[in-house]
Design a protein around this nucleic acid. Structure first.
Lengths: 278, 278
DNA sequence: CCGTTTCTGGAAAATTCATTCTATTTCGAA
DNA sequence: TTCGAAATAGAATGAATTTTCCAGAAACGG
């Protein structure tokens, strides 16, 4: 009987890996301990650097990195590194806790579907902080604050966001005009847009052609465009004075709108603050 | 005399790189534009994947990635990738700083307002898992799946949710009818509601009286009511066959809708699953 | 419509990289 | 001090990845 079998298998996520390293650190040979320490002190380098670079940084031979990985049960350094990389990709608050519940990606029971959507929504929201460029958000808020009228355009999937913005901006006492296209009269509704005005255009792939047309029309009349899209290359972005990019984690063919709603709300409040401050 | 020299040098930080790509995108040949787009839409992958993987993901030859990098002034793909990697590394301190700022409830600079909304939205979404009773969610999905017609009602702040549900359910091939009250004709729109139908009513405090009236009308005609509200004591809840309670963390007078949107999306998909299973 | 330039796909070549192997060193126990 | 086991360094190997190259296709200008 071989009770020395140390691992059922190597840790597959960062948390477990970290714990195992901490556990073993005391009993490790000198060089391996040195590597262990370096690994936990600079996890981002572990994720991105090559064996040679890490060896240099930790004052160790390249082969030591490989031995280290193998002593933890991995087949080689590359396998160990993938754990660090996954961690770099996915880190956001409470990720583990939620992941544990969603782990099983299959299952069509309603409760499980809800869990999965909670997970993707949380992901999208957390990503907002990364994808929004602070300067652009600032610029957008200022454009709204200074506008004589704020026109709001968003169709199909983007319409809920547009209607929410219209509600929030209206409540905040902005001169907000929702281009809802009732009776196909969006062009009439926007007929008097001009250089003193700002148009918020919300559009996601696939981009509704009439949205793009209306944006071009507004730009031509000198209005400032604030774009909320899922890609900086969207046709709407091209005309925009400020670009806000939202990447919703998608879920099959369906994308949630949670992050976009959070952004919309924040934009409304921020604009009011800018207006009232100046 | 060579004024065609396009760059003093390739961008060394992500911000500059991003701007240069945006600048040039319009004038790029087809395949390079394709890569450009993929690069800015998936910066994480650009940082972590190999040329072959990225080529596959962008539907392009590996050599195109290299040509893309060179067209921006880099010596090859590896040099370009290092910029993406640096960006990925530096994101972490950023995030930490962000969290620290969120704690500080004051501050009216736009960027800080955005941080706070991201935080509250994330909390609301996470709370969904706790406030939704699985059995009720199940029941709601089943009621939608079995309905002859699905009527959707939500006004004012709840309207964005209602319109989103109408969009999603419609896409999923449900017989969805949005009671948008255009021309104050909600009662006419709902005139033929009956026992085989389900009405999704979305309502938050302060409850819009006409919503409550319409819910009572529908209940009287025998329709099943699914309520999405912020309190089980809401007047709409009283009539409901299934109750979904969403508590959005509020932020001053304004409540985000992020969690409610996630719930709406999940409900739509879950209903489709229930329908297609049985 | 033709000639020229630019762009693209694909495969071959070159480079970088992780891993393995072996001789040597270190460490601990007797 | 000596022996044996474990650990290490460094070069050699082989695999993976990037880069180059060129023939052919597409776009462009006359």
């Amino acid at each position: 009987m071989d009770d020395s079998q140390p691992d059922a298998g190597p840790p597959r996520d960062f948390e477990a890996l970290r714990n195992r390293i901490l556990e073993r650190h005391g009993a490790m040979p000198k060089r391996l301990a040195q590597v262990a320490r370096h690994a936990l002190d600079h996890p981002d380098r572990m994720a991105l650097s090559t064996v040679a670079e890490l060896a240099e940084a930790a004052s160790v031979q390249p082969s030591t990195l490989v031995r280290f990985a193998q002593s933890l049960g991995y087949s080689g350094f590359s396998e160990l590194q993938s754990v660090f990389r996954a961690q770099l990709r996915d880190r956001w608050p409470d990720y583990r806790e939620r992941l544990a519940r969603v782990k099983d990606e299959s299952g069509t029971e309603p409760a499980r579907i809800l869990d999965r959507f909670i997970d993707t929504a949380a992901r999208s929201v957390a990503d907002l902080g990364r994808t929004i460029v602070p300067g652009e958000f600032d610029a957008a808020a200022t454009l709204l604050a200074r506008a004589a009228h704020v026109y709001i355009l968003g169709q199909r999937r983007a319409f809920p966001v547009a209607s929410y913005l219209a509600y929030a901006l209206g409540k905040l006492d902005f001169p907000a005009i929702l281009l809802d296209n009732v009776g196909s009269m969006a062009d009439v509704q926007a007929g008097r847009i001009g250089p003193a005005d700002t148009l918020i255009a919300i559009s996601f792939n696939p981009y509704t052609p009439s949205t793009i047309d209306l944006v071009r029309f507004a730009a031509q009349r000198g209005a400032a465009i604030v774009a909320i899209t899922d890609s900086v290359f969207s046709p709407v972005s091209a005309e925009a004075r400020a670009r806000l990019e939202v990447v919703e984690a998608d879920h099959g063919a369906f994308r949630s709108l949670s992050a976009t709603m959070a952004l919309a709300m924040a934009l409304a409040i921020a604009s009011a603050e800018v207006r009232d401050a100046g």
